[in-house]
């Protein structure tokens, strides 16, 4: 091995770097969905919201020249999808899961339709912050090029965790999620709280989508999301509805996704389909190990239709 190649050290580095690069969309979608599910509703449509956010963020950045406006537009588009989901769900006998699947298909289709003119043009990308200035290794420097959205997510996770425990609105969301009867008795409208919580979830998913199109991989294309949105919804369950858990789960998932390419790059070339499946096998394994047939999942909001 030459001095400038990392060899086997490249694998842990690539996993860490991959965790930082790939995890951000998972992170944003799962944080948003965490709030939505804590309010007692599950929004499976976030895959469509993510793709819609990626498209509208890229399109806005293309037209306006500002990636920040792009993020805002992505968040707003996502928020609108969240509001749509919440409004339809507040109608009697509407199933939130079925509606979520419908909105997932709708969001993806609408994004493909509106996104046609933006496949080719180049939008200005989001800037990154160089946290690797102390290292002389270009690999480490590149791995530690951190995007501002990633840092914003790191700040948001403990804030949300604190908010759920200590703030007034956090307790209202939790109460609505655990017992809508109690909330009604206290004078809060469960539908209104869920509307805000789902809109917030949609906003976060839209921002997560704009990360895909504006930073990494950094272009709008129709195959941009390979199921990140729907995976993030699963990550919330995996993280036991805990914002800090969402952070670790996203990092784990991002890192596991980087394992396949990293192993191939150091010459472990056999069985790459297996390594590429690592994130999914990991999820299955953890879910099996942590599940029980005798009790409900710890931390699950009681009003959630999947756990009720």
């Amino acid at each position: 091995m030459e001095s400038d190649a990392l060899g086997w050290w490249g694998v842990p580095l690539a996993v860490i770097a991959g965790a930082i690069r790939v995890s951000t969309p998972f992170f944003f979608v799962s944080l948003g969905e965490c709030v939505t599910e804590r309010s007692g509703r599950i929004n499976l449509g976030l895959e469509g919201t993510l793709v819609m956010g990626a498209m509208s963020g890229y399109g806005t950045a293309c037209l306006s020249g500002s990636p920040w406006l792009g993020i805002l537009a992505a968040g707003c588009a996502g928020g609108l999808f969240g509001i749509l989901h919440a409004l339809l769900c507040s109608l009697p006998r509407v199933n939130d899961i079925a509606l979520g699947i419908a909105l997932m298909l709708f969001g993806t289709g609408l994004a493909f339709f509106l996104g046609k003119p933006f496949i080719q043009p180049k939008a200005p990308g989001l800037p990154s912050i160089d946290l690797g200035w102390w290292s002389s290794l270009p690999q480490v420097r590149s791995a530690l090029e951190v995007n501002v959205l990633f840092l914003a997510g790191i700040a948001a996770a403990p804030l949300l965790a604190w908010g759920f425990r200590n703030s007034r609105w956090g307790m209202i969301v939790r109460m609505v999620g655990d017992s809508s009867d109690a909330a009604r008795a206290m004078g809060y409208s469960p539908d209104r709280v869920r509307l805000l919580a789902t809109a917030f979830g949609g906003f976060m998913a839209g921002v997560g989508g704009s990360f895909l199109s504006l930073y990494y991989p950094g272009a709008w294309s129709e195959s941009l999301s390979s199921g990140q949105g729907i995976t993030a919804v699963a990550l919330v369950i995996f993280a036991r509805w805990n914002p800090l858990g969402c952070f670790w789960a996203s990092l784990l998932f991002g890192g596991a996704g980087a394992l396949g390419p990293a192993l191939q790059s150091v010459g472990v070339t056999e069985g790459y389909y297996l390594f590429n499946a690592a994130p999914y096998m990991l999820t299955l394994l953890i879910l099996i190990l942590s599940s029980s047939s005798r009790r409900r999942l710890a931390g699950a909001p009681a009003e959630l239709s999947v756990t009720r």
Partner: peptide, 26 residues
């Protein structure tokens, strides 16, 4: 050095593959 991503269009995996190869000095 070859990396097979597994499908014709997987943008995130293609970016990861390129970065891992660059880390190995390609």
């Amino acid at each position: 050095q070859v990396i097979f991503t597994g499908d014709w269009s997987l943008p995130v995996k293609e970016a990861e593959a390129t970065n891992s190869l660059a880390d190995q000095g390609v």
